[in-house]
Structures are given as C-alpha cells and as structure tokens.
C-alpha cells in the first residue's frame, strides 16, 4: 500500500536549505577536495596528481609529530578540565547573589577573544615584566617558555585550562541544578554518603551535559590555533606546533595549496571520526544491557 501523493514540486521546498548548506559547507569543502588532487602552479597551469598529496602528507614525519602532540594536548586538557569543571560546579553556591556573582566571575575568561588570551599570557609569563614569569624567577625557578619546551607546554595547558574550564563548569552547574530536591532527600533517608550521592545521583544525571562538554572541548582543543601561536609561536623549536599551525604555515606561508588541501581533509576526517566514535560509544553505554520485557 502506498497512498503517498507523488509530487516532485515538493523538492522546491528543500531548495532554500540546500542552497544555504551548499554555500556554507558543500562548495567550500569541494573546493578543498578539488585542490587536494591537483598541483596548482598558476592560474592556468594545473595537473591532476591523484592521491599523491595524501601519500606525502601521511608520510611527513613533522606532521606526524604535530599529530601526536595534538592528541597529547587534547587528552591532557580533557583529563584536567572535565574533573576540574565538575568539581567547580559542585562547590559553586546554589542560590542568592553569591550564585550570580560566581557565575559572572567564572564566565569572564570565556568572553575574551582567542588572540587576546594569547597576548595576556604572553605578557603574564615574561620574565621581565610578567607577574608569573617574574614571580617564578624571583622564587628561583628557571622558567622560560621561549627556551624550555616543558615550560611552554605547561603554560599552554594552564592557559587552556584557565580559558575553557569555565565552559565545562557552567554546563555541569546547569546539569546539577536540574536534579530535583527529592533525590537528595531520598539519599539522606537512605543514609548515602557524600561520595555515594555524587556517584549514584549527581554523576549519572550529569552524563548528558558531560557528553556535550567533552565533545565541544575535544573539537575545540583539536583545532586550537591562535592562543599557542601568539604565546609561543609553536616553539621552542616545534615543540608546541599543533596541527592547525602546521596547516597555516603550509597553506598561507608556503602557498602549497595541494598538500594543505589534502591535509585539511585528513584533519577534518580525524575530528569527525573521533567525535562519532565517542558519541556512539556513550550512547550505546546508556542503553539497557538487559532489554527483556520492557515497559
């Protein structure tokens, strides 16, 4: 039985959306795909190269190093920001003017533009005039982000934690606020410890916001560009050169359109893949493992 009315004019209704998506995503992406399989020498001189650029990108050891650094960076900041964000959300005041005040204070870093964040920390860590750089030196600690790659790493991570933990904290705070009071009352009656309340009430109720927080923070951190660029310029050496900076150097600095297009596509697919795997895993974990009977 098919009672559907066939009317091909209905496609016209989809057209506006299609145009919008075409200009916002499909056409730019296709341009990149187009570049990635050609060697462009000038306006009228181009050769088809097939998968050659992809091979060379995948075999480029500098890019592999950047990729490893990028993964390490994203995992590190996630490992710090998620527990820290939950912790902050748990101790934030729940009502009254204190709650509003803390919310505003905590949101401030989120409002600062990326470039400015980099500049702030660049000055902050300078040994001559920066509060942190000068302070550490006075304490006798040999701290120099332009010379020690360890210091540079630690500073970039500290900067990212300062800049983005508030986002995780705010998401968790809103999640915690939505837990009905009866849950806490029931837990008291059941003599649950603080830890048990966290483990069996708060954390399960936070799962959904945490999925969003982790996804956002992963995608964000995997694409980080402006802050480390301004702070360390990728150095010392290439110790803090992440993927997007390598890409920018290749595409804008060296005008290697073909390789950088291939690089962009691989970059994009990695983010897509990781996010998809993470999301489906979490969603799968939430399903009942024993679906007999049911409601």
């Amino acid at each position: 039985m098919n009672n559907k009315v066939l009317n091909n004019r209905a496609w016209l209704l989809v057209l506006p959306m299609l145009v919008l998506v075409a200009f916002s995503a499909i056409i730019p992406l296709m341009t990149v795909v187009n570049y990635s399989v050609q060697d462009v020498l000038g306006p009228n001189a181009r050769f088809f190269t097939g998968t050659e650029w992809f091979h060379s990108i995948l075999n480029d050891s500098a890019l592999r190093d950047a990729f490893v650094r990028q993964i390490l960076f994203s995992l590190t900041i996630l490992a710090i920001q998620v527990p820290l964000g939950i912790g902050i959300a748990l101790i934030m005041p729940k009502r009254g003017w204190q709650a509003s005040a803390v919310l505003i204070l905590i949101t401030l870093p989120l409002l600062i533009p990326w470039n400015v964040v980099g500049s702030i920390w660049q000055i902050f860590t300078r040994g001559d005039i920066g509060l942190m750089g000068y302070g550490l030196r006075e304490l006798g600690i040999n701290y120099n982000i332009t010379r020690n790659s360890g210091d540079a790493w630690a500073t970039i991570i500290l900067m990212d934690v300062w800049h983005w933990t508030p986002l995780v904290a705010m998401l968790c705070y809103s999640g915690l606020r939505s837990i009905p009071e009866a849950y806490y009352q029931a837990a008291r009656i059941d003599r649950a410890s603080k830890w048990a309340i966290f483990r069996y009430i708060q954390l399960p109720k936070l799962t959904n916001v945490l999925v969003i927080a982790v996804l956002l923070r992963f995608m964000h951190s995997f694409m980080i560009y402006a802050e480390p660029f301004v702070l360390t310029g990728g150095g010392p050496g290439s110790s803090t050169t992440f993927l997007s900076q390598s890409l920018a150097t290749m595409a804008i600095g060296q005008q290697d359109l073909g390789p950088s297009a291939a690089f962009s596509i691989i970059y994009f697919l990695v983010i897509l893949l990781v996010s998809w795997v993470f999301y489906t895993t979490i969603m799968h974990m939430q399903k009942d493992k024993n679906p007999h009977g049911g409601a």
């Binding site: 009905p180 849950y183 009352q185 029931a186 009656i189 069996y200 009430i201 399960p204 109720k205």
Partner: peptide
C-alpha cells in the same frame, strides 16, 4: 519516605 515522583538510582 516515598515521594511524589519516583526517586530511584538510575545506574
């Protein structure tokens, strides 16, 4: 105490 909306430990 049994509340208006069932309180159970989801996980």
């Amino acid at each position: 105490q049994v509340f208006q909306f069932p309180v159970i430990y989801d996980t």
